[in-house]
Amino acid sequence: MDVRVSDRPPPVAALPFDDWVAARSVALLRFAYLLTGSQSEAEDAVQSALERALARWSVVSQAKDPETYVRRMIVNEHISLWRRWRRRVSPVAVVRETSGGAGDPAELVAGTDAVRRMCAQLPPAQRVAVVLRFYQDLDYREIAALLGCAEATARSHVHRALQALRRELEGNGDA
């Protein structure tokens, strides 16, 4: 299924795999970090997606936007992993990793804290929808295509996430 390319970087001409990864790894890692909330999970998710891309690089590299293809694999793996175990899974306590470069937590504005807490508590599908909408700037049709759901469902995911953010801010007295 083709995904319309909006205002993302123009596709790079078919590069060798290593060169392409060097050019896009930063963006992919940041994207995966927002999806998973964990540095180690982000690295694993990107690595897994790139392994599959490498196996088909002769085809992937010729696509209009290989990065969209890889991002889709990252999203799919993140969602399928959750779906695989969700019937047997109670929410698992994931170690929240702190970045050495984030500075003193006391200096974080209330908004950052609220967004961080909201993202950590969102179900995976809502979290993915939020990241795709407000970090990747995809429209709802593209989000629905990536999540494999109806466009109305994608809108609902985003709407609920915004409600959750409002509740977090109201809880801090910042409404």
């Binding site: 940041r30 540095q39 984030a102 967004v115 990241v131 407000f134 970090y135």
Partner: peptide, 11 residues
């Protein structure tokens, strides 16, 4: 804030 959070990732 998502842009800021994304910047926390080690790249």
């Amino acid at each position: 804030e998502l842009t800021r959070l994304a910047g926390e990732a080690r790249t």
